[in-house]
């Protein structure tokens, strides 16, 4: 039907895969598919925002009820480590945006480089998180609820704060890990030449996902580390 011959037949088999790519048959053409994928990804991002919104409500209500526990808990976090991780994630958001641009301009080397850098930024985020935050806090007994054993609490409600800290950063970190898996997948596909100016749906979609992971952190960082 509406699939144009140019989409499938006129290109030599030697053309790179992204030029030979045909949209799935229930779409008119590649642009139609791209629009649908983009709408789908944005709807998915809306679900992510609503998922994290539960944690932000948790923060707002419990901070209102027990400000002293939250202020003291916050003072036990090192804002410099949080800032370092913020810089790492912000830089990775730049590289992932640049990878979309590289796909659009058919800069294959730049595409692969940016995907790799973004992956390693995710890894760096996790190393900093586990090495300098989760590890020492676990050793100190700054743990959620019933596992809490830190001796220097100023408020009996501090276990709640640590429950929020571990819950929110843990769910965020799991999103980082999922994102790193997606970047491995993108890198393998980019080696095969799957992405180019006319077909970069996956790069765009994963890029948008990575931005939401970044934005959630941009809200978590001041709420957890900076507000006193």
């Amino acid at each position: 039907m509406a699939t144009l011959p140019a989409d499938k037949d006129l290109l030599a088999a030697s053309a790179p895969p992204h030029e030979r790519y045909r949209a799935a048959e229930h779409f008119r053409d590649r642009d139609h598919e791209f629009d649908a994928v983009k709408l789908g990804v944005w709807l998915f991002l809306a679900t992510e925002v609503l998922l994290f919104s539960g944690l932000f409500v948790f923060y707002g209500i419990m901070r209102m009820l027990y400000p002293e526990a939250f202020i003291h808990g916050s003072s036990l976090l090192d804002w410099r480590i949080g800032l370092l991780n913020t810089i790492v994630l912000l830089y990775s958001s730049y590289t992932v945006a640049d990878s979309v641009r590289c796909a659009q301009t058919n800069d294959q080397a730049g595409l692969r480089r940016n995907i790799l850098i973004t992956f390693f930024c995710g890894l760096a985020f996790l190393i900093i998180k586990f090495g300098f935050e989760y590890g020492p806090k676990y050793a100190d007994g700054k743990l959620p609820g019933a596992f809490y054993s830190y001796p220097n609490a100023v408020s009996e409600y501090e276990p709640l704060w640590w429950g929020l800290y571990w819950g929110a950063t843990g769910i965020h970190a799991s999103h980082v890990i999922i994102g790193m898996g997606l970047f491995i997948w993108l890198y393998i596909r980019s080696l095969k030449g799957h992405f180019g100016p006319k077909h970069y749906n996956a790069v765009e979609g994963v890029g948008l996902y990575w931005h939401i992971v970044d934005i959630v952190w941009i809200f978590l960082f001041p709420l957890l580390y900076l507000i006193h």
Partner: peptide, 14 residues
């Protein structure tokens, strides 16, 4: 599993 306390009134939850 972890008794984070958010819904547990004994720990200040609601």
């Amino acid at each position: 599993v972890f008794h984070i306390g958010i819904f547990d009134p004994r720990m200040g939850g609601d």
